[in-house]
Design a protein around this nucleic acid. Structure first.
Lengths: 341, 341
DNA sequence: TGGTGCCGCTAAACCGTTTTACTAAACGGG
DNA sequence: CCCGTTTAGTAAAACGGTTTAGCGGCACCA
């Protein structure tokens, strides 16, 4: 028993396919009698228009794609993503769009893009200079870039004041008296490209704070890790073996959480033996013990703005960019270094 | 400049559309010369096959739908969902499927279903007796039910031993000496239907423990809340105003988290003044202070199994169901009631 | 030399809708 | 009563691919 098509309904009701289509989409074109008869027969047969066939002609899928630079399950290891999706979805739901999670197919974002049947994309963490995005642009599909760095471009984007937030956070540690600071940076998904985008911005912010405080910035104290708790833990442990630090400046809360693990493993107490600061202010940040000092950014809001911008693009053509504010959130995980106490 | 189609490529290469299609899909049918020429011209023109048109004939979308009973952003307020998605995605990524988040359109799950262009569905928390699922079945689309209750049915499903887990957890509290236990149950998305599925199973488990211990089960001490932190907090506060309790037995960690909030608001210490137990063992459970006593279930694994089952259905037809184990995880949030100390 | 089989490619049908262009009948106005 | 307009519906094209059936030419074999 094959699927019921519009032709089946038409045949059974002794009308044309057009009439059936009208019954659903522009009922005014039909006399109430025939309309009801068609609708009734359609219901009887259990007919539902095929969304794919419908998309063929309407050019609308009713869903938007969320483009991730990593496998979904890898990305989700960082609570940041669920949170930004929460924001995106709140807008999508209101506008009756579904969200398709699109991650690289066999390492190729481009390949994944080609397969996604969506009306537009929200991309997280990728710059338009990167191949995949230029590919979308060629397909003339609306895009909104989130966390793509603040390069001025014609593509709509939503960013936060990464550099300022990072600078404030680093300044906070320096003002407490820390001099031996371990920086844990986010490793980009594409290691071959020079540092850019969010990691670049935040690193620049850190560096600025050091320069403004007249303290030498040491590249050899910057370590890179994928944004997962485990990677954060490992990189901090590795760094601790090679050097001595009084503070960890992590570029993401999830990395800071790894630093907590590392501290516990090493028997170091926070903040007496080691101060830890993060970035994001995820919900877990306040639940940690001690609660994490971090840079708060409006993650849900970021997602919501991006979705709004995209949906507006879908209707009125591209346009608009936004930069949201960050705020340093001092909690219990940072304190003066032991030497200064 | 309209989108480049297969006809454009064909015309430019002086071959038929078929040849172009072959160049991409069954290169063996073409001589190496023509194949390369076509591919080269296609690349030059920036041609990419339209995924929608392709689906028309292949009957494959390459994505699977995750059917949620609530709006996505509401569901995501419970970390359980991101976690189960993490599991689903790990399998999807491996099999090159994308995941479409499908939530009700204007309150209608059915409506949302009709719009989703997917190869199959994973449904969370809904039973096949419910309309939407029967609708999918009529469309002859593979489905896997997660957390649908253990009714025997021909639909593949993945469940956990909810009843046993809940019973163990309740027993734990009773053995500690608690008699005034506040039960916080998950409120189903559809309030008009009688209690069933996961909430029903867990509640039965609680009740069993009471009966086995010879302690009267009191319906008036069962309160329902949507699975969000805020709802958990509110319902506990409301219950506390009306009665006196030494323990909270929450059906989900996220509700237990709300109970923590309520306890803090009331100035009650955990576990001295009030014991709290949850269900799920989300990653945050161990981070709370004190760490939460809860029933551990393999959430990621649940998602992964469901995805595996679904993808197998897609290939070989439906079949298979699984029940995963739970395990009571006693931590610091439960202790003897003050009166028994 | 004639039949057979394979190679490389094409024309046309098909997937299930929507949309466009058109028609026959009913209707209304002068 | 005739002509123009609306009403209610239809036939066919279009969307952009894949798939099926088939065709001409060449190679091989008897």
């Amino acid at each position: 028993m094959a699927r019921v098509t519009i032709s089946d309904v038409a045949r059974r009701a002794n009308v044309s396919k057009t009439a059936v289509s009208f019954a659903f989409n522009s009922p005014g074109q039909l006399s109430p009698d025939t309309r009801d008869r068609i609708l009734h027969i359609a219901g009887e047969l259990g007919y539902r228009p095929d969304p794919v066939a419908r998309t063929m002609t309407t050019k609308r899928t009713g869903s938007i794609g969320l483009l991730l630079p990593q496998a979904v399950h890898t990305a989700f290891a960082n609570p940041f993503y669920p949170l930004v999706i929460e924001g995106i979805s709140s807008v999508c739901d209101a506008h009756e769009y579904s969200l398709l999670l699109v991650s690289p197919v066999r390492g190729s974002v481009e390949e994944a893009l080609g397969r996604a049947a969506v009306d537009g994309f929200i991309s997280i963490g990728m710059d338009e200079a990167e191949l995949p995005i230029s590919h979308i642009l060629r397909r003339e599909m609306p895009v909104v870039l989130v966390d793509a760095g603040d390069r001025e471009g014609e593509t709509p984007r939503v960013n936060i004041s990464d550099r300022v937030g990072a600078r404030e956070c680093a300044r906070h540690l320096l003002e407490l008296g820390h001099r031996d600071v371990l920086v844990v940076a986010i490793q980009s998904y594409d290691e071959t490209r020079p540092l850019q985008g969010v990691p670049f911005e935040r690193l620049s912010g850190y560096q600025q704070a050091f320069e403004q405080a007249g303290i030498p910035w040491r590249e050899d104290r910057v370590f890179f890790a994928r944004p997962t708790r485990e990677a954060g833990r490992e990189v901090v442990l590795a760094a601790m073996r090679k050097g001595s630090y009084t503070a960890v400046l992590a570029m993401a809360d999830i990395l800071a959480l790894g630093a907590y693990d590392a501290a516990q493993h090493l028997g170091m107490r926070i903040p007496c033996d080691i101060s830890i600061a993060g970035f994001d202010d995820l919900p877990i940040a306040g639940l940690l013990h001690p609660p994490l000092t971090t840079v708060a950014q409006p993650v849900r809001e970021k997602g919501a703005r991006a979705a709004t911008l995209l949906i507006r693009s879908l209707q009125d053509g591209p346009g608009g960019s936004e930069v949201l504010e960050t705020q340093l959130c001092v909690r219990g995980s940072t304190g003066p270094p032991r030497s200064a106490m």
